[in-house]
């Protein structure tokens, strides 16, 4: 018996006349890796922005762990345990790699407005931060400013920072976008390790990544759900093949 961690009903977003997301019903089961795919402009990233409340939906409801989060602010959604990544790598360039991870760890220390205290008081997070960096293979870069890391390592750092919050639901926006093949393999291994104890919803273009990782797939086109199911079923769906994979795949 599976439980639903995230559910949307009739989720819609219209931008001055253009409907980017049109009555989308999603049900993400706890503990699964769920992929959201579709051609460019299908509304995948808009969907992510709606779920994490970076955009306010025009209509519809979002339930996270059984609670209505449709009206929450994005920071509060994150605090409830749904944390997203971004398409462009999102690190804090001026901070060191270690400080990047620490920023996430120190969030719940309470009183983070203590401008009178020395930042030496943050060193107690260093061990956990280092452990997380080791997890993603960045332990030797702890003192490097994040801006100087290579693209693949920035993505790895971003994942380490996200993991520091230990979120039950992780939203990954194209985790392998713009990556070379060896980096892709590393991220895929990482995601596979991440999944224990949590649910992952991801937008991904790389179909080999999707087929290898995900338990369920939702195909979006023009803001609507076209098909849903396991990769084998969805990839054979004629509607999906024409709309997304192109006729020459048939």
């Amino acid at each position: 018996m599976s439980t639903i961690i995230l559910e949307t009903s009739g989720l819609s977003k219209a931008f001055s006349g253009f409907t980017a997301v049109d009555r989308v019903d999603l049900r993400i089961e706890t503990g699964t890796i769920h992929a959201l795919i579709g051609p460019n402009g299908a509304g995948k990233t808009t969907c992510f922005n709606l779920l994490t409340k970076f955009l306010q939906p025009s209509a519809g409801r979002i339930l996270f762990q059984g609670e209505d989060i449709t009206r929450l602010k994005p920071a509060d959604v994150a605090r409830r345990g749904m944390v997203r990544s971004f398409q462009i790598s999102a690190v804090f360039g001026q901070l060191s790699t270690l400080e990047n991870v620490r920023i996430a760890l120190q969030r719940d220390r309470g009183g983070s407005f203590d401008f009178w205290r020395s930042s030496d008081s943050l060193t107690r997070y260093d061990d956990r931060a280092r452990a997380l960096l080791t997890d993603v293979g960045l332990e030797t870069f702890a003192d490097t400013p994040a801006a100087e890391l290579s693209y693949g390592r920035k993505r790895a750092l971003e994942i380490a920072t996200t993991l520091a919050l230990d979120p039950p639901l992780l939203l990954l926006d194209e985790p392998t976008a713009g990556m070379a093949e060896p980096d892709v393999a590393r991220i895929v291994t990482l995601i596979r390790r991440l999944r224990t104890g949590r649910t992952i919803l991801m937008v991904e273009h790389n179909l080999s990544v999707v087929s290898g990782l995900s338990d369920r797939i939702t195909v979006l086109t023009r803001g609507r759900v076209l098909a849903e199911g396991p990769y084998e079923t969805v990839s054979k769906d004629p509607a999906v093949i024409t709309a997304y994979l192109g006729t020459d795949h048939a």
């Binding site: 994490t52 970076f54 994005p74 920071a75 509060d76 994150a78 605090r79 944390v83 997203r84 990544s85 971004f86 999102a90 690190v91 804090f92 360039g93 001026q94 901070l95 400080e99 990047n100 620490r102 920023i103 996430a104 120190q106 969030r107 220390r109 983070s112 407005f113 203590d114 401008f115 009178w116 205290r117 020395s118 930042s119 008081s121 943050l122 920072t161 996200t162 919050l165």
Partner: peptide
């Protein structure tokens, strides 16, 4: 002291990438 406090670290990160800080729950 303000710049080099835990608060200062958060502020620096907000300047670097505010949407990311929001996504981390700040």
């Amino acid at each position: 002291r303000i710049v080099n406090s835990p608060f200062g670290q958060v502020v620096k990160a907000v300047r670097d990438n505010e949407p990311r800080m929001i996504s981390l729950g700040y």
